[in-house]
Design a protein around this nucleic acid. Structure first.
Length: 348
DNA sequence: AACCCGGGGCA
DNA sequence: TGCCCAGGGTT
């Protein structure tokens, strides 16, 4: 890598990138009126989530929880409720824990290593927060940077996944980092990836570093990075729709569960101790068939309407089951898909 | 290193 | 429908 022509033109690259960023950066809330708090909240929200999706959540979040102290003082229920619909809810719990940890410290840490110790903060987020807020010389490597770096150098290495690509490209990202403006350099890299160096149809004609880009000059930028195709596994789940006396039966996942802790969904067959035969009878009616995807799973959820009389006392006494008045459902936290499906089924 | 997290948007 | 997105945690 030391012999990379790109490294030899490092200064030219940095200047062109930063000059472009000064002019063309989008006005985003964490840039317009920056603060450590907004930077941290936005970075956690932006993990695996696009800018456009984050914007309304961030705006509401800083209204409800204006600073670390307010966030630390909030209940976990309130914190997760305000994350409802963003997905990957562990991020919300981690942000809550982080706020509590931070206000308990004698001083706000300013090193990447110290931030790495905090919940929800890994290699990317620690570099982003410390470079932007404290000028720490740490290069970020996210999906945008992977795309830019592999195109700049026409790096045809086949990567198993984006995590291994990030790790492999970290040295190059570090070597290119502008030590005078690490925060802006990092943001400029990501901004270039988000607005010019698109995955498909990259706008090479307006790219500030086209002359330094191997793939761009070769005319095949779209062929980078070379990532292995993800293997998707099909799964299916049966859910129960049961309304009695104006109340809907829901399942609340345990607070220490690995997935969807303290969140509500329509009860799955297993939550009621039912097997597939329970849905074969004449009083079970398939009322919806829905699909959801997460990471490597494509899940089909079949929702069966079942009369309450069909459920045994033993089934209904299982832990996590709750009867919720239809009017009260909005006060609970549901997973994004179930929030939509329940509201859809209640209307019909 | 591999797997999990059970989201959401977009072409 | 397939693929990507300002990833991190666990084993």
């Amino acid at each position: 890598m030391a012999q990379s022509p790109l490294i030899a033109q490092k200064t030219e690259f940095q200047r062109a990138l930063l000059a472009w960023y000064r002019v063309h950066q989008r006005k985003l809330p964490w840039r317009t009126a920056p603060s450590l708090y907004k930077t941290v909240v936005s970075e956690l929200m932006l993990q695996q989530t696009q800018v456009k999706t984050v914007l309304p959540y961030l705006a509401r979040w800083v209204e409800v929880f204006p600073n670390f102290k307010a966030l630390a003082a909030a209940s976990e229920e309130q914190v997760v409720k305000n994350w409802e619909g963003l997905g990957y809810y562990t991020r919300a719990r981690n942000l809550h824990k982080l706020a509590k940890a931070l206000i308990a410290l004698p001083a706000i840490p300013e090193t990447r290593e110290a931030w790495m110790e905090l919940p929800g903060i890994g290699p990317y987020t620690s570099a982003a927060i410390t470079s932007i807020s404290f000028g720490t010389r740490a290069a970020v490597v996210d999906g945008n940077v992977v795309r830019i770096l592999t195109r700049l150098t026409a790096d045809a290495t086949p990567f198993r996944d984006s995590a291994s690509a990030s790790k492999a490209l970290a040295p190059l990202a570090d070597a290119l980092l502008n030590h005078d403006e690490p925060g802006d350099h990092n943001q400029a890299m990501m901004e270039l990836g988000a607005t010019v160096c698109h995955r498909n149809n990259p706008l090479c004609t307006i790219c500030p570093v086209l002359t330094l880009c191997s793939a761009g000059r070769n005319g095949d930028p779209e062929s980078y990075p070379k990532l292995a195709a993800k293997v998707i596994e099909q799964r299916s789940v049966s859910r129960v729709w049961c309304v009695q006396k104006g109340k809907l039966l829901l399942h609340r996942t345990a607070g220490d569960a690995r997935r969807l802790a303290n969140m509500h969904e329509l009860p799955a067959a297993e939550h009621l101790g039912l097997d597939e035969s329970a849905f074969a009878g004449p009083d079970a009616k398939l009322i919806a068939k829905k699909k959801r995807g997460i990471t490597r799973f494509a899940i089909t959820e079949s929702i069966y309407e079942l009369p309450a009389s069909r459920l045994s006392k033993d089934s209904l006494s299982r832990t996590g089951l709750v009867w919720v008045a239809v009017a009260e459902i909005d006060t609970l936290t549901l997973s994004g898909p179930h929030k939509r499906w329940v509201s859809e089924l209640l209307r019909s």
